[in-house]
Design a protein around this nucleic acid. Structure first.
Lengths: 208, 208
DNA sequence: GTCTATACATTGATAGAC
DNA sequence: GTCTATCAATGTATAGAC
């Protein structure tokens, strides 16, 4: 293995190749799921040979695991940014917007995650009931406090968060369907979604 | 083949076995996706031998295609029920409830569909830009008419429908995640979701 | 109609030349 | 570090006995 054992130094070339491979792997895994993807597909996409891929990564699973690990970090980030100090409605709607931007700019990551969850989350179930649950619990407390202080209309914090996740990710995961029904260009679809989701969650949070 | 050619008669036994196989196939396909599923898994689940499965169905694809076809019918049904004559808010919220009940009672079908869409809908892209789009267009006209008549707060009909699809199906497709975060029993989760979604869409449709 | 046995293709991973 | 060749395992589908 190039990146283990005696030599700890990782050259620029090595890092760039690893990145190129991971990028190709993300392409393939997000489109076909783990079992639907073959190392050959990844090799073709990365313009490398199959054994060359396996020189940089021990196995198909290693690539998949690394991609999932990365994705989970960026996945949790937008929610962590939601601050308990700002204006409640703006904080939540800001989170919605960031999440929608992620669906627009990183649809592959969203689909990789969706594929994993659909299969029962075999590789990340621990992260779901660990870090993800902990983060959600923390933010649910903040939202509940806002409600108790009369700054938000009463709403179940957890299901509010689920609604934010589902509506925003829908534009990445079900993009084919959205496009089949709407037909519009991608940028236009996301501008419409932006307005719509802001309207919806604002209505929910500020009803009388 | 048992069900083609000279004999057109389909016995009760044959029909029951075909049903049992399709039921097992739905179990497996919805959990592992098309390529992640093997005929062996389906055979084990149906308590039959692999060749016996292939006696009733030409191929793995045939089973998958039949399941998708069935699912699409039931998928379109709840939206078709939404009548242009009733009370607008109740009609839409009734649709939300029916869709949520489907996610609760037929999660396998929902996941089968989600898997197919995630992979780019290779087998049903025509149904999406055909029947599904046509139905959505019809209902969007109804919703727009309600808005023009002042019976609903202004909202983009298409993105309203997307929000209904995404929030309800989320409880089937992302069930593992919902359970990891909430931990509650399934029935409780769906009761909470029912209240939450009714509140949310009612707020959106009746804001001032 | 249902089974065992097997043909044939795909695929993950390794060996060894260069 | 990268390639060709190949192994072993898995999986779809068929042949043929019963």
């Amino acid at each position: 293995m190039a990146r283990s054992g005696t030599t700890k130094k990782v050259t620029r070339i090595q890092r760039e190749k690893t990145e190129a491979i991971l990028n190709a792997a993300l392409d393939v895994f997000s489109k076909h799921g783990f079992r639907g993807s073959t190392i050959d597909m990844i090799a073709t996409n990365a313009q490398l040979s199959k054994p060359n891929i396996l020189y940089y990564f021990d196995s198909k699973e290693t690539m998949h695991a690394q991609l999932l690990e990365r994705m989970l970090e960026t996945w949790l980030e937008p929610l962590e940014q939601m601050s308990g100090d700002g204006d409640p409605v703006n904080e939540i709607c800001g989170y919605v917007q960031r999440k929608l931007e992620m669906a627009r700019d990183y649809p592959r990551e969203s689909r990789l995650f969706a594929n994993e969850i659909l299969q029962g989350a075999p590789h990340i179930i621990d992260q779901l009931s660990g870090p993800l649950r902990a983060l959600t619990d923390r933010k649910a407390v903040v939202i509940q406090r806002w409600i108790d202080e009369g700054k938000l209309s009463p709403v179940d914090p957890y299901h509010l968060i689920f609604s934010i996740w589902s509506t925003t990710q829908h534009y990445a995961d079900f993009d084919v369907q959205v496009q089949a029904v709407l037909g519009d260009a991608k940028n236009l679809r996301f501008e419409q979604a932006q307005v719509h989701l802001d309207t919806m969650f604002r209505a929910l949070l500020t009803r009388d």
